[in-house]
Simulated assay, not measured.
Amino acid sequence: MNDIVRTPGSGTSRRPPGLTSRPPALAGTSFKHEHLQAILELPLTEGFFEVHAENYMGAGGPPHRALEAIRERYPISVHGVCMSIGGQDPIDLGHLARFRDVVERYEPMLVSEHLAWSSHGGTFFNDLLPLPYSVATLRQVCEHIDQVQEAIGRSILLENPATYIAFASSTMSETDFLRAIALRTGCGLLLDINNVFVSATNHGFSAEAYLDSFPLEHVGEIHLAGHVEQQDDEGEPLLIDSHNRAVDARVWDLYRSVIERVGPTPTLIEWDSELPAWPELRAHAQTAQHVMSTTHALAEEEVSHHG
Score class of each variant (00 low, 15 high):
Asn2Ala: 13
Asn2Met: 13
Asp3Pro: 09
Ile4Val: 15
Ile4Lys: 11
Val5Leu: 15
Pro8Trp: 06
Thr12Cys: 14
Thr12Glu: 15
Leu19Val: 15
Thr20Tyr: 14
Thr20Glu: 12
Ser21Arg: 15
Arg22Leu: 11
Ala25Lys: 06
Leu26Tyr: 14
Leu26Thr: 11
Gly28Pro: 05
Ser30Cys: 14
Ile39Lys: 02
Ile39Val: 15
Leu40Pro: 07
Leu44Asn: 07
Leu44Phe: 12
Val51Leu: 09
Ala53Phe: 06
Glu54Val: 04
Glu54Ala: 07
Asn55Val: 08
Asn55Ile: 06
Gly58Phe: 08
Gly58Lys: 06
Pro62Lys: 15
Pro63Tyr: 09
Ile70His: 12
Ile70Met: 12
Pro75Gly: 05
Pro75Phe: 11
Gly86Thr: 05
Asp89Ser: 03
Pro90Asp: 08
Pro90Cys: 06
Ile91Arg: 02
Ala97Asn: 11
Arg100Gln: 07
Arg105His: 01
Pro108Cys: 06
Met109Val: 13
Leu110Lys: 10
Glu113Thr: 11
Trp117Glu: 02
Trp117Lys: 05
Ser118His: 09
Gly121Leu: 08
Thr123Asn: 14
Thr123Pro: 11
Phe124Asp: 11
Phe125Tyr: 13
Asn126Val: 15
Asn126Arg: 15
Pro130Tyr: 13
Tyr133Arg: 13
Tyr133Asp: 11
Val135Thr: 15
Val135Gln: 15
Thr137Asn: 13
Thr137Lys: 14
Thr137Tyr: 10
Val141Leu: 09
Cys142Gln: 09
Ile145Gly: 01
Gln147Met: 13
Gln147Glu: 13
Val148Ala: 01
Gly153Ile: 03
Arg154Asn: 05
Ser155Lys: 11
Ile156Cys: 08
Ile156Arg: 02
Asn160Ile: 07
Pro161Ile: 07
Ala166Asn: 14
Ser169Leu: 14
Met172Glu: 12
Ser173Trp: 09
Thr175Gly: 07
Asp176Tyr: 12
Arg179Trp: 08
Ala180Phe: 10
Ile181Glu: 11
Ala182Pro: 08
Leu183Gln: 15
Cys187Gln: 04
Leu189Asp: 06
Val196Ser: 10
Ser199Val: 02
Asn202Leu: 04
His203Val: 04
His203Cys: 05
Phe205Asp: 00
Ala209Pro: 01
Tyr210Gly: 06
Phe214Arg: 00
His218Trp: 11
Gly220Phe: 01
Glu221Asn: 00
Ile222Cys: 01
Glu229Ala: 04
Asp232Thr: 01
Asp233Ala: 09
Glu236Val: 00
Pro237Gln: 00
Leu238Cys: 03
Leu238His: 02
Ile240His: 05
Asp241Thr: 00
Arg245Met: 08
Val247Met: 01
Arg250Met: 04
Arg256Cys: 10
Glu260Ala: 11
Pro264Tyr: 07
Pro264Asp: 05
Pro264Trp: 04
Thr265Leu: 07
Pro266Lys: 00
Thr267Arg: 01
Leu268Ala: 03
Leu268Asn: 00
Ile269Trp: 01
Glu270Trp: 02
Pro279Trp: 01
Glu280Gln: 13
Leu281Met: 12
Gln286Thr: 01
Gln286Gly: 05
Thr287Tyr: 04
His290Trp: 10
Met292Ser: 02
Ser293Tyr: 02
Thr295His: 02
Ala297Met: 01
Leu298Thr: 04
Leu298Pro: 03
Ala299Cys: 03
Glu300Asp: 08
Glu302Thr: 12
Ser304Cys: 09
Ser304Lys: 13
Ser304Glu: 08
His305Pro: 05
Gly307Trp: 14
Gly307Val: 11
